[in-house]
């Protein structure tokens, strides 16, 4: 997909992120964050990562927003304090890290570069093996659930443990 589209989406993300942080009404902030998740999903789709885009849509734009809204039911829509003045130290740190990222950006291989390290290391092995070894056309599924099944097992345990911890915290007698 064209670079221009990705640039527009990234610009939109920046605006939405600032909007979500600065919104005085937390309901507005939560919805803005949901829109941010949706635009993020569009960005993933635009650069060809469809599975990630799907996950971002259901989790980032869907589930997270609903959970923020449910949390607002129990608390208040108002911020405890108005968005305060700029903190100079934080601004300097963020600017420094941002500059560092932009400066080192050129070291990354171009998107879809077949000669890049990730494309010549294990990826060919997975792409060639997926069909004969697992009978699964979608290589992402085969990698997530089979080749890297150990990682996904731990991720599932992490989600379950995190959910259980959240449930226990919310169940606790006040």
């Amino acid at each position: 997909m064209s670079d221009a589209l990705v640039a527009v989406l990234l610009g939109l993300l920046l605006i939405l992120a600032v909007g979500a942080v600065r919104a005085a009404d937390l309901l507005v902030a939560a919805i803005t964050l949901g829109v941010y998740g949706f635009v993020m999903a569009l960005t993933w789709a635009a650069i060809g990562a469809v599975d990630v885009s799907f996950t971002e849509t259901v989790v980032g734009a869907g589930a997270t927003t609903v959970f923020f809204l449910a949390a607002l039911l129990r608390t208040s829509r108002r911020r405890s304090a108005a968005p305060g003045r700029l903190r100079l130290g934080a601004l300097l740190l963020v600017t420094a890290v941002g500059t560092l990222l932009v400066v080192t950006l050129h070291a990354l291989p171009p998107l879809g570069d077949l000669a890049a390290a990730p494309s010549v290391h294990v990826s060919p092995r997975y792409l060639e093996g997926t069909r004969p070894e697992t009978g699964t056309p979608n290589a992402v599924t085969a990698v997530v659930a089979d080749y890297r099944g150990y990682d996904t097992l731990m991720e599932t345990v992490v989600i379950f443990t995190a959910g259980l911890a959240g449930w226990l915290l919310l169940t606790r007698e006040p």
């Binding site: 599975d51 799907f54 259901v58 699964t136 056309p137 599924t141």
Partner: peptide, 18 residues
């Protein structure tokens, strides 16, 4: 259908919960 198309257990779980 996660074997053939984008998606899989994680996305299905979130949609079911949703």
């Amino acid at each position: 259908h996660g074997h053939e198309s984008p998606g899989g257990g994680f996305q299905a779980g979130v949609i079911l919960a949703a």
